[in-house]
């Protein structure tokens, strides 16, 4: 799974408020500008959007809906009855449950803690937390493969406490959701901690001082003042992480190769779609699974854009 590049949006969003304010003064076209100029500037992007965003989505839907007699849901029914379909979705939802809950708790807690530190110390911590983002994907999966191998792992003492002797003990089927959650947290949490830290910096100092004068301790200030004020970033993180997490692919793929198939090749829905397409030559069924995933991502994105009020579509 690639860590969503959009994880940095909220930082930029902070400045976007100014953009929104500016936008209100921009009802009329800027003096002297012409409409055709606008089309010219967005032309290349629109071509890419149509060719690489809209067209493949329509193509997938058409493939998924094609049936012998015309249009139908036969491929959706096919995949739904496929014996690996339900487990694949169960796997990713279990993984997401563990990951989203723990990431939300730890990211918010760590951001609050980092925020109370002196600036230089906090910069160091933020950098350490952020650095693993450099190895998102295959690299992190390999490193964690070693971390989860009881012989030679720096975390061997923890693995031994669970009586794990070899890698296959650690990657037992029941452990996989938590293993992928740890990998996702390792590469993704740092970026979010930096973002939450930025959001915390935006809280007016007077508000926090007023609470302290009223006798609020650090814990109460965090719970009653700071967390409610950064709530929308927390929601944003949850939604983005949910959408990205449903697409899990690279981690189970790498672990599958490394354990010689101990992690099934169709552990996640995306792997299932891949195998339907390239191992079984069932492209229409694969397209149906892709559409399922696309719908999950689309619904989440649309809810966030229209209801979340995070983005100023002026």
């Amino acid at each position: 799974m690639t860590v969503p590049s959009a994880t940095v949006v909220p930082d930029e969003r902070v400045s976007a408020r100014r953009g929104r304010r500016a936008a209100r003064h921009r009802e009329r076209p800027p003096a002297g500008s012409s409409r055709t100029a606008g089309y010219f500037f967005v032309a290349l992007y629109v071509v890419l959007l149509l060719a690489l965003g809209v067209a493949p989505a329509i193509y997938a839907i058409a493939l998924a809906l094609s049936a012998p007699g015309g249009i139908g849901f036969a491929h959706f029914v096919n995949t739904f009855n496929f014996f690996e379909f339900a487990p694949a979705f169960e796997h990713v939802f279990e993984f997401e449950g563990i990951w989203l809950v723990s990431q939300t708790f730890f990211v918010v807690t760590l951001a609050l803690m980092v925020h109370t530190l002196a600036r230089r110390v906090s910069t160091t911590f933020r950098f350490i937390f952020y650095l693993p983002g450099a190895m998102a994907g295959a690299a992190s999966a390999i490193v964690w493969l070693f971390m989860f191998t009881p012989s030679g792992s720096p975390w061997a003492f923890i693995l031994h406490a669970f009586h794990y002797q070899v890698l296959s003990n650690t990657v037992a089927p029941g452990n996989l959701p938590i293993i992928f959650a740890i990998m996702a947290f390792f590469t993704g949490a740092g970026g979010w901690i930096v973002i939450m830290y930025g959001a915390l910096n935006n809280i007016p100092q007077e508000l926090i001082e007023a609470a302290e004068i009223d006798g609020s301790n650090a814990f109460q200030t965090a719970l009653r003042i700071k967390i409610p004020l950064i709530r929308k970033w927390i929601v944003y993180m949850l939604v983005l992480a949910f959408a990205a997490g449903s697409q899990l692919f690279v981690e189970p793929q790498i672990l599958g190769v490394a354990t010689n198939g101990e992690v099934p090749a169709q552990w996640s829905p995306n792997q299932l779609a891949y195998n339907l397409a390239f191992q079984l030559d069932r492209f229409n069924d694969a397209a149906a699974v892709s559409v399922d995933l696309l719908v999950i991502g689309l619904v989440v994105a649309v809810i966030l854009v229209w209801r979340g009020k995070l983005f100023g579509v002026d």
Partner: peptide, 9 residues
């Protein structure tokens, strides 16, 4: 499309 994970496509 920015929020939708690109892997779905």
């Amino acid at each position: 499309v920015m929020i939708m994970p690109a892997t779905a496509l």
